[in-house]
Simulated scan of single mutants.
Amino acid sequence: MPDPNIRSAVRDDGGTLGALDRAAWSTLHEVVPAPVPPYRPFFNESHPPDACLVAELAGAVVGYIRLVRPTPLTSNAHVRQIQGLVVAATARRHGVGRALLEAACAEAGRQGATRITLRVLGHNAAARALYTAGGFAVEGVLPGEFRLAGRYVDDVLMGRSLTAY
């Protein structure tokens, strides 16, 4: 399978990305209830198109990653946070997640960030392995932070430097 094409999202991607998001919904990585109609727009003020990178295989959108400033504070303007990474079930295990993660780190660096962070649910072993392989380290754990499908799940905070400081 060829390498995925990674590009910046455009407003017209909203419908496709929303459908991808809904198809991928699972308590493995979501803490909010499953979406029901009428669906909210994928893009909003907090997550505009320019905060999203899209992965394509053979011209079809198969994934995305959201990259934002975690707060509006000047004191942490050097940090970017991943607030969503989804890969279509049919495209998993083909390097799409890794390519999106690498592209997000490169984009964060282009934006002047020196650090990138994310949150992942403790029971999501595949995502944690992807992030670890991408140079992220566990920086904190909030034990039992969420109750999902009848069990308590840890919220794992991960991060990595984009420079050597």
Rank of each mutant, 00 (worst) to 15 (best):
T16F: 00
R110M: 05
L20A: 03
A104C: 08
A149V: 07
T16W: 00
P72I: 14
G159S: 12
R7F: 07
A133C: 06
R147C: 11
A104G: 08
A104H: 01
P41G: 14
G95I: 05
S161L: 14
V156G: 02
T27S: 04
V138G: 08
H123M: 06
F42R: 01
R115Q: 13
F43M: 09
E56I: 12
T16G: 00
P70N: 05
A24Y: 05
L17N: 00
G14S: 10
A129F: 07
M1H: 11
G122R: 09
G112H: 08
F146K: 02
R93T: 11
Y39A: 13
A127Q: 09
P37I: 00
L100T: 07
F43C: 07
E102R: 13
A89D: 15
P72S: 15
L85S: 04
L73M: 12
A127L: 09
I65Y: 09
V87Y: 08
P2F: 05
L20F: 07
V87R: 03
E145H: 15
A91I: 05
A23G: 02
V79Y: 06
R80W: 11
P4G: 02
H78N: 13
L157P: 00
G122W: 06
D50M: 08
D21Q: 10
R66K: 15
G14L: 03
D50C: 09
A99C: 06
A99F: 08
A55E: 10
L121P: 00
V36N: 01
N124G: 05
S161M: 11
P2V: 07
C52P: 01
F136K: 01
T27N: 02
G150H: 08
F136G: 01
V54E: 07
A34V: 06
R40T: 11
R160M: 13
V36R: 13
T90D: 15
L162C: 06
W25G: 00
A108G: 09
Y165W: 07
R128F: 08
G95V: 04
R119W: 12
G63P: 04
L53S: 06
V32R: 09
I6C: 02
G159I: 02
L157H: 13
A58G: 10
D3M: 13
S46F: 10
R115V: 03
A113W: 02
P35I: 04
R98D: 07
A125G: 14
I6E: 02
L157S: 08
R147Q: 13
P72V: 14
F146R: 05
R11A: 15
A34T: 01
H94W: 01
R80G: 06
Y165F: 10
A34I: 01
G97P: 03
